[in-house]
Amino acid sequence: MSCRFHHLLGIEPLTREDISFILEQSRPFQEIQSHPLKKLATLRGKTVALAFFESSTRTRISFGTAASRLGADSMNLQAESSSLRKGESLIDTVKTLDAMKPDCIVMRHSSSGAPHFVQQHLQIPVINAGDGTHEHPTQALLDAITILDRKGRLDHLNVTIIGDILHSRVARSNIQLLGKFGAHFTLCGPAMWLPSELETLAPLGSSIRRVSNIEDAVRDADVVMVLRVQQERLHEPALPLDDYILLYQLTPERLRLAPSHAIVMHPGPMIRGLEIDPVVADCPQSCVLEQVTNGLAVRMALLFLLIGGPHDESKEALHAAD
């Protein structure tokens, strides 16, 4: 089976089948992460451009490691050293990268829709590694495989997401993904980060309710996702940190209100003592580190599908015969 899509710009345009396909393709790569020797030669000779216009540590390292474990080379563009600082337009920077002939570009940008815009100017696949407050599709995929591992299913889950939902691309991608599998979402956070329009995001067959009380929000949860508190957002509008901790920190007492089978997830970077109590972060229900490991598997699968897929291998065979 070959890949139906050329880019990964978001979860929204994908079907349930697309998602299941990516998750199935991630399985073998998931296994590789526990091998003593983790490096494959599948994408040997291929180059992945990592264009992180917004600073990132874990996602960039995860994609870089995924590329390297597939045998691909990567080229790195980082926000701090970016020519954007010198006034170059995004499109010129990306075309310059493209002229170095990478086989795909993995891109993070602070503007929602930046990868969609870039993709119109490029032939090579574009993978969205987070765009503004829009989507972070690989995060939702790695969350999905983590949920599958822990719960054995993706269908009809009760999913509680706590934090700054309004500005969260992680929340949007997870709503799109788990929503396609009929999830019932409970969104919880300060009211100004929880506008009513959020309810319109629910994919067909799923539902979204907004709850301001965390005790109510976790009660029937199969999955509790804790979002990072973006401290830069606290000023817009001003929300005292202590209030946030008082009302929304996931503490052991609050987690106890959830079913004992509920799992706790966090996209990182996690700040213990702010959005999550350290005891919760380290408890058996927490799958924070599995999420990180699964990130490698999902990203390897995507790179493989988008630049190394079966139909490229046949091309290589042709070249070998020349």
Binding site: E12, G113, H134, R169, R172, E197, T200
Partner: peptide, 9 residues
């Protein structure tokens, strides 16, 4: 509105 929410704009 719903569209700005969906587009993350």
């Amino acid at each position: 509105g719903p569209t700005s929410m969906r587009m993350g704009l």
